[in-house]
Design a protein around this nucleic acid. Structure first.
Lengths: 230, 230
DNA sequence: GTCTATAAGACGATAGAC
DNA sequence: GTCTATCGTCTTATAGAC
């Protein structure tokens, strides 16, 4: 059993420790507010090693953003997809993951990509592009769920745009939850989103029979409450 | 005609110049990335004067956030409300204002409160509270429009939560537009929001007659296109 | 690849004259 | 209220030994 064996868990390489430490600190305090010295301290690495692997602090950020792309599947999608096999419910399981994150941090920490998007999009074009790729990654996963829902959604609903809308609601509601230190805005937004999607699927199921609409609406609202106030 | 006459437009006071310069630079580059020296240069004020009015850089940020509360009515709401008297259309006129902002800056600049919310919410409690008050101000204006729409919205639609949802969509879509340097995400989100509100008003207008639904849906989609791709 | 020491400058904030 | 000069501190990044 050598130090490089996959089953053994020795100290990760300096490079990996740097990316992990930087990822966490950029998430906690932002890019500008994180000093290189803090990253070195947390990673237990010396300055010389950091600048051996990365030419600048910004290059380290690029490595962090690449890392987030790799982490989407195992850290966000897989846990959510294991919760349910229903494609539409999988979307809400992803959203629930961010709710758990907000709960665990008392609404202090949200989506790390959203933070960096607003702070860094104007400062570096390579950074902006990687952020856009992160969003696109997330959006395509949601779009996959919408496509898998098949005829439950009316054929004239644009899966691509609906996926964008869902990402929009997620990022916006996490922002408001952090600013207000409350889950209210998050829950209100997800409940509305659920109601909207319920109305869309409802229309696909009964395109000409609308006599039962008021009852349907009440049911969809009850469903929201179950989701957002567990 | 003295220098203090309201009709005259002499150089604004140093304090006002500082708040104006800081507001613009915090919006362009964020709080941490803006040096006090830059603010002084833009405001044509010396360091001594800044620290005569404000104890710290953070206190200047608080003044900027107070200023944004004052600017909501004349800079955001009034122009949008002059465009139309229809309460629901007024909401989309507000959203159009942010679209104009994105267009003018090639998707480089968005909502200044959203930027500061993600950057500063964890760093200073007074700052976070003022950011939350800014969002609440905006949200109450939208809620007012929803209430003014009266019976066009079904009685069981929670105006409060719908207003939160609209703010959520606005902030999220501006974030994605900036990250992707494209209005596509913004337009997709606003189109979906318009479709959702159209479905809600439709239900209020004809609570039991649903035979015309497919035609209604087509019409609401055409309306979206007019709004989001002018 | 890793270490220590330090360069070179930007940073927020202050002192004290006017 | 405004001015200039400057204080410590913190910053990113580098040099050069091991």
């Amino acid at each position: 059993m050598t130090a490089t064996a996959k089953t053994a868990k020795p100290k990760p390489s300096s490079r990996k420790r740097l990316v992990d430490a930087a990822r966490e600190l950029f998430w906690l305090h932002g890019y500008e507010a994180t000093a290189v010295a803090e990253i070195l301290e947390r990673a237990k690495v010396n300055a010389g090693s950091l600048y051996y692997y990365f030419k600048t602090k910004e290059e380290l950020l690029l490595a962090v953003l690449e890392n987030y792309i790799e982490l989407l599947e195992p850290e966000v999608l897989r846990p959510a997809f294991e919760a349910t096999a229903d494609p539409l419910e999988r979307i809400f399981a992803i959203l629930l993951g961010y709710r758990v994150l907000l709960t665990m941090t008392e609404c202090r920490q949200g989506c790390p990509i959203g933070n960096l998007a607003l702070e860094m999009s104007e400062k570096s074009e390579p950074v902006r592009e990687l952020i856009a790729r992160n969003f696109e990654n997330w959006r395509l996963a949601v779009r996959r769920c919408l496509i898998d829902a098949g005829p439950r959604l009316p054929g004239d609903v644009d899966r691509d745009k609906l996926a964008t809308f869902i990402l929009t609601v997620m990022e916006g509601s996490v922002m408001l939850a952090r600013a207000s230190r409350s889950l209210d805005a998050y829950d209100a937004a997800v409940a509305m989103l659920r109601d909207y999607i319920a109305r869309l699927t409802e229309r696909a199921a009964r395109p000409i029979d609308g006599a039962l609409r008021p009852a349907d609406a009440q049911e969809s609202e009850r469903t929201n409450r179950e989701e957002t106030e567990p």
